[in-house]
Design a binder for these strands. Structure first.
Lengths: 373, 373
DNA sequence: TTGAAAGCGCTAACAC
DNA sequence: GTGTTAGCGCTTTCAA
């Protein structure tokens, strides 16, 4: 039957296309109610749906925003960013044109051209993980960066507040009474997140009046294996220098901490407390015991980026990164330090002896068996 | 400065817009080489990029395909589908309009309308996991279904070949010498995948002349906990009925198998072999030992769907689902059954002291430490 | 309160 | 070989 055009509706309603347009766009109220009803009925009858293409050409606004990503699509976190951006777009009647460039500069340039050709109303440049980027030439001004920030400034951007997140992780351990807290860091020099979380770690320690022990800052490959190896080194330390709590760069490394601990017959959190980072779905909650960790606000960052791109969220400062909270997800991998350690530390720690673990208001119901013993 | 239009290029080159259009679209070769060069230079000079909107209106082809998904974006597998679809689209100069409906029927209907209004050249309807769907009214004919198939037929679709995948998993165990093989199934009745993998399991056993023991088909919640609980039941079986190999509905449940095994002091794969399903990224490879599993061909399915939607892959039959191979990912969780079991099925004996690993041709270099002990 | 008509930027049939 | 021109389907100014 072919698409119905506005002229078909006009003919069916016995009015002009102007009237149809006015009615259907709810513009000016100058059209009589009677006519409006007739027009709407006609539109319904002929199954009319306005062509976004024609409208886009006429108005020079497409109600489409482009989302460019460097292999965002292949990480388990990407989905949440996309979902956040997508939801915000939908709420404001916009569509999302998604292009993953796989990090290839040529593809990226082509994608930028294609998006410009589509006359998108806005553009989001997203990264897989928090980092500084050299914004590609051709990224229209007014674009917003997601999970990365522009090396030279000039664009609005949103990133997780890794420093505060790192501090929160460490405070979680401090609150449980730990004094000797290690930071199990990635050995990859690139992630800005690594540096920021470390800053947070130092900050939280300082706040608690604890001097950071360089021996407790260890690094390893960003994987379970890497986490395990680094943990071995930590556990090889003389007993009085050994950490009672470990803050890990991410959940994968925390998996390695669990492994190393079990290997030595240590139980979590009885003998060792651990806090991860990322709240990796289908992983952190399934560990045994479920891992206390810091969540990356991917969904919220996606929303933020879209809202700013759409202009529905005022964000005056073009040059500052918006830092977004990383919430603590309390599960069961943090408890008080072992009693003998607490004593040995001359009871400087002021933890309660009351509960087996720190206050965990939003703790998930726990059947007590998880994937490790 | 505003966008350059085709007339600007024409003026700059001193030719008509027709000529510009012809040259830039590489249409007919009737334009002289000299003119072509002049036009291209002019286009370059004024920074001309044709408006896809205007072109779309004129040609009634947008070179955009819509991808509608039910919360595809929030699973760790979704990214690979998206990446496959996206890559195929890019290779054929198409863009991808992505909408995640979160499974909400109203949003879905709106999305369908929006995509139609955009005059997309094709549409893909994607699911998070392999299932049968009631295709929403309004899904244009010619659309293709991804990771699901239409309840009533009428659309092309691509799904993983879970039956063959299940059989492959079991054959992996059979090849290592196992005879008593359990299927650790999900207790969720919906997934068609569960049924198909079970069929594959039965098929592989039959092929090997083994009669399936109903006691070895156990179910549990689709999680590490569920896998662990179900495994306990399996290990509680009298020794001569106990499985030496377990095929799991998915990797998460396999995590539970590891946990239950360790709880009883069993070592994988020395005392128990296990095969998972999904090849969940950042999980399967990080287990200790790394998990042998069956991969879901998400990327390939995404590509296939896009290629069919674009018509670059002929797929005559509108009513048959295309089943796509699920490759075996060999890692280290499969070995021969314990010697005493192989020799004699009813012998209470201590484990072999050596515990040789199975031949694992493409085994990853293994430092021997993973996240469990 | 309604309608006529001028484009938005492009492609392509047709004319030269 | 190259140019003129008529739309694609819509919004919106201006006139009635």
């Amino acid at each position: 039957m072919g698409r119905a055009r506005i002229s078909d509706v006009a003919a069916a309603a016995g009015v002009s296309v102007t009237t149809v347009s006015l009615v259907l766009n709810d513009a000016e109220s100058r059209i009589s109610e009677q006519t409006r009803i007739r027009v709407r009925a006609a539109a319904e009858a002929v199954g009319y749906a306005p062509s976004a293409v024609a409208r886009g050409l006429r108005t020079q606004r497409t109600r489409i925003v482009g989302l460019l990503s460097d292999q965002i699509a292949t990480t388990p976190f990407a989905g949440r960013m996309l979902a956040g951006a997508q939801d915000a777009a939908r709420e404001h009647d916009h569509l999302l044109l998604f292009i993953d460039t796989g990090g290839d500069a040529d593809i990226e340039a082509d994608a930028l051209r294609a998006l410009a050709a589509q006359q998108v109303d806005g553009m989001i440049y997203a990264c897989m993980w928090h980092r500084a980027v050299d914004v590609p030439a051709g990224l229209p001004r007014g674009s917003v960066l997601l999970d990365c920030y522009p090396e030279g400034g000039g664009f609005r951007s949103v990133v997780p507040d890794d420093r505060v997140g790192g501090a929160a992780a460490v405070r979680e351990l401090l609150a449980a009474g730990h004094r000797r807290i290690a930071y199990l860091d990635t050995d990859d020099p690139e992630p800005i997140a690594s540096r920021l979380r470390h800053e947070g770690y130092l900050e939280a320690l300082a706040e608690a009046g604890i001097e950071a022990d360089p021996a407790l800052h260890v690094t390893g490959e960003t994987s379970a294996q890497g986490g395990r190896a680094a943990t071995e080194r930590l556990l090889d330390l003389p007993e009085d220098q050994r950490p009672t709590g470990i803050f890990c760069f991410n959940d994968r490394m925390a998996i390695g901490v669990y492994a190393a601990a079990h290997h030595r017959g240590l139980e979590i959190p009885r003998d060792l407390s651990v806090v991860g980072y990322d709240d990796q779905q289908l992983v952190a909650a399934e560990m045994d015991p479920p891992l206390t960790t810091i969540a990356l606000p991917h969904y919220e960052m996606g929303r933020w980026a879209m809202e700013v791109a759409l202009g529905v969220r005022a964000e005056g400062d073009e040059d500052a990164s918006h830092r977004m909270d990383c919430p603590v997800i309390r599960r069961d991998s943090v408890g008080p330090p072992p009693a003998h350690v607490a004593k040995q530390n001359r009871r400087r720690a002021s933890h309660t002896t009351e509960g087996p673990r720190s206050a965990a208001p939003d703790q998930v119901p726990d059947v007590g068996v998880r994937h490790q013993e």
